[in-house]
Amino acid sequence: MSAHLAYVAASYGAALIISAGLIGWVVLDARARRRELKALEDAGIRRRSAGGGAP
């Protein structure tokens, strides 16, 4: 392997960190909003346009 391996490893590491960060942000945000939505529905709050159906 060449002397430049550290630059290659750092690049793939950066790609992994940024991709994992974006995936983590999207997944955790979705989970939190889903929980919030469920809590509101359980409290009997419905959107007017939902007509009592699922969101």
Binding site: V26, R33, L40, I45
Partner: peptide, 18 residues
């Protein structure tokens, strides 16, 4: 996925206002 979550976020805000 982010767009779906944003729609949910706006829905939650509307429900809270209601």
């Amino acid at each position: 996925a982010a767009m779906r979550t944003e729609i949910w976020r706006r829905r939650i805000a509307a429900m809270r206002r209601q």
